[in-house]
Simulated assay, not measured.
Amino acid sequence: MANGTHKWVWALLPALLAAGAAAQAQQYDRYRDDGYNDGPVRCESIKGRTQQCPIEGRARLVRQLSGTQCIEGDNWGQARNGVWVTRGCRAEFVAEGRRPSHGNGNGWGNNGGGWGNGGRGQVISCDSNDNRMRRCNVSIRREARLIRQTSRSACVEGRTWGWNRDGVWVNGGCRAEFEIR
């Protein structure tokens, strides 16, 4: 009986591996379907070491892989020609500027929009306490950008934070400082 079970497991193993690969491919294809030209770039800090990974455009964290929280400006950030991670942050990133703009002020696809040109906009804090949705009302003329995450919970634009012309919203425990323009 045990020998028959082993044959069954070995016969089923290729199908299981193919299903896992298909699920992984679906995950990557989702970003292409959403308008990104390239799939995510995996960047990993192994043994706490700093790693830099090439990516064209402003990096957006789309999936955290590590048990260590990846906090922008703390253990990951934008580099000249890519993204850097350190102190155990392992995540997948996409290039924000590679996504076509929808023109609806939701912050997606803005390729930087003049960030880092020396002129700062208004900085506000917005906190999701007890994982509850919170709206921070502020007039936004051009854009909002996360500049410093203060929570252990990941702040991922479009998932746990976003914006429109009337302000910034946060959810799922995301707490951060945002630059408003």
Rank of each mutant, 00 (worst) to 15 (best):
G57Q: 05
G57H: 06
R58I: 00
R60A: 01
V62M: 09
Q64D: 03
Q64E: 02
T68E: 05
T68Y: 02
Q69A: 13
C70V: 13
C70Q: 15
C70H: 15
C70G: 13
C70P: 15
I71V: 15
E72H: 05
D74H: 12
N75G: 04
G77A: 08
G77K: 15
G77C: 08
Q78F: 09
Q78A: 11
A79T: 11
R80D: 15
R80K: 12
R80V: 10
G82H: 15
G82N: 12
G82W: 14
W84M: 02
W84I: 01
V85T: 13
V85M: 09
T86G: 05
R87D: 11
R87T: 10
C89E: 05
R90S: 14
E92I: 14
E92H: 12
V94T: 14
A95S: 15
E96H: 09
G97E: 05
G97Q: 14
G97W: 13
R98C: 01
R98P: 02
R99Q: 00
P100D: 14
S101K: 10
H102T: 02
H102E: 04
H102L: 03
G103F: 02
G103M: 06
N104I: 00
G105D: 14
G105S: 11
W108Q: 02
G109N: 05
G109M: 01
G112H: 00
G113Y: 01
W115M: 05
W115R: 05
G116A: 10
G116Q: 05
G116S: 12
N117F: 11
G118W: 14
R120W: 03
R120N: 07
G121F: 01
Q122P: 01
Q122W: 01
V123L: 08
I124C: 03
I124Y: 05
S125P: 09
S125Y: 02
C126M: 07
D127N: 08
D127C: 07
D127S: 11
S128I: 10
R134N: 06
R135P: 07
N137A: 11
